[in-house]
Simulated scan of single mutants.
Amino acid sequence: MHGPAMSGWLLMALCAVTGSYCLLRTRTGSEEERRTARAEALMGFGMAAMAVPAAAVAPPAWGWGVYAVLFGAAALRALWFSRRSGHHLHHLVGSSAMVYMALVMGRAGAGGHGGHAAHTMGSPGMAGAGGIPLLTGLLLVYYAVYVLRSGARLVPVTATVPGGPPSAGWGTRPELALACRLTMGIAMFAMLLTL
Rank of each mutant, 00 (worst) to 15 (best):
V69R: 05
S82W: 11
L92G: 00
V57F: 15
A110P: 08
A54Q: 13
G111N: 10
H119D: 09
A73R: 10
G86C: 01
Y67E: 02
G109P: 08
V52C: 07
M50L: 13
Y67M: 09
M105S: 15
A118W: 15
V104D: 00
M50V: 04
W64R: 07
G65M: 06
F45M: 10
A108E: 03
A54H: 14
F81P: 00
S95C: 11
A56I: 00
V99P: 04
G94K: 04
L103S: 01
R83K: 15
Y100W: 13
G112W: 03
V69P: 01
H90M: 11
P53H: 04
A78P: 08
A108D: 06
V52K: 06
G72S: 03
S85T: 08
L103C: 13
G112V: 03
R83D: 10
A110C: 03
G106M: 08
P60T: 07
A78E: 08
A75V: 00
W80M: 05
L103R: 07
A97W: 07
G112E: 01
L103W: 08
A58P: 12
G86V: 05
A110S: 14
A58N: 05
G114E: 09
M105G: 04
P60Q: 08
P53K: 03
A102K: 05
H113Q: 15
F81H: 12
S95F: 06
S95E: 04
A58Q: 13
H113M: 14
G114R: 04
F45Y: 14
S85V: 00
F71T: 02
R77W: 14
A68G: 05
F45R: 06
R107T: 10
T120G: 15
G114Q: 08
M105N: 11
Y67W: 12
G112R: 00
T120L: 15
A54F: 11
F45C: 10
A78F: 11
A51D: 05
T120C: 13
A110N: 01
H113N: 11
V104E: 00
A108N: 05
G94T: 14
G111I: 09
H113L: 13
F71A: 02
G65H: 12
A108I: 00
L70C: 12
H88K: 02
G86W: 09
W80D: 11
R83W: 09
A110F: 06
G114I: 06
V93Y: 08
G111W: 11
V66N: 04
H88M: 12
V57R: 12
A56V: 05
R83V: 10
A55L: 06
A58G: 11
W64D: 02
A97Y: 07
A58T: 15
